[in-house]
């Protein structure tokens, strides 16, 4: 009897060890590459290109990469551009998606067909849309302009936002609105005073997602900008296209530009699954 218990206990400890070994390995696998960006950002070129593991791991931190990034490249300008485009497009997305999502959730406007088409437009390949827009933008002089890329980002995010908001609006009980209507509220006031406060977390979540998708977007930014409206992803991508690959500068740029998305990932934990599944999984 005693022996059996002892064996069982050993088995439990063994299982626990296995559990933590796997867990820690997975965490290293996930966080390692992200950490590597930050390590590389503080390394001198000599250490990066040394080709020895010791010098990769044990090195004297230096700010030379950041200095080069700030002085030789328009890093802050592109960061500012990215910020303007992300925020601008998100405001536009909300203006369009918020009323529409409410309409779909509340009255099933269009019997689900418009909602279906909205979400199907998310399938629309960016490259396909790029060809006609490139030609039109060239005619109306929107190439390499902030507003041009803002419009594209709005198009790129509007279906996602509508669908996600639709899910949040559906969570608002109809009875609440009916009660407000009996109390003599007009339709606009019902929306503003009853529904809006309840979906505020949903609006915040959707906005943050739209900002992040725009922040990360590459294809449109790459095709529709030249010098003026370049975004930070385009700048970072240019570091490795050139003849000498500037890993240090690239890492410094990446370290700064991914910081907001990492922070968002941490603070939005509860909503990430819901957002990424278009609201289908509440997580």
């Amino acid at each position: 009897m005693r022996e059996g218990e002892k064996l069982k206990k050993q088995g439990v400890t063994f299982k626990r060890v296995i559990f933590w070994v796997i867990t820690i390995l997975v965490m290293i696998g996930i966080l390692g590459p992200l950490l590597w960006i930050y390590l590389t950002a503080f390394k001198s070129s000599a250490d990066i290109f040394a080709g020895s593991l010791n010098r990769q791991l044990i090195f004297t931190p230096t700010l030379e990469n950041f200095k080069r990034l700030f002085v030789q490249f328009p890093f802050f300008k592109t960061l500012g551009n990215t910020l303007i485009m992300s925020l601008g497009s998100t405001v536009l997305v909300m203006i369009v998606a918020l009323p529409a999502a409410y309409s779909f959730a509340r009255w099933n406007t269009g019997g689900g067909h418009i909602l279906f088409n909205t979400i199907a437009s998310r399938m629309f390949p960016g490259v396909v849309a790029s060809i006609p827009f490139f030609i039109v933008f060239r005619h109306i002089d929107l190439l390499d302009k902030h507003i041009g890329i803002i419009l594209l980002y709005m198009y790129f995010n509007v279906s996602f936002a509508t669908f996600l908001l639709y899910g949040f609006f559906r969570d608002v009980p109809v009875e609440l609105e009916q009660a407000a209507m009996i109390d003599g509220y007009g339709r606009f006031n019902i929306f503003r005073k009853v529904v809006l406060p309840l979906v505020l977390p949903g609006i915040a979540t959707t906005s943050v997602f739209c900002i992040i998708w725009s922040w990360n977007e590459f294809l449109f930014a790459f095709l529709f900008s030249r010098k003026v409206a370049t975004t930070v992803t385009v700048l970072i991508s240019s570091f490795w296209g050139s003849i000498d690959v500037q890993y240090g500068t690239m890492a410094a740029g990446a370290a700064i530009s991914i910081l907001p998305t990492l922070i968002a990932a941490w603070f939005m934990q509860r909503y990430i699954v819901r957002g990424l599944t278009f609201g289908a999984v509440k997580g």
């Binding site: 922040w215 590459f218 991508s237 991914i258």
Partner: peptide
Amino acid sequence: ILMPLLVAPLILSIV
């Protein structure tokens, strides 16, 4: 574990 999910795929691919 959610950390990589919201990072720009382009930047991750370069890394």
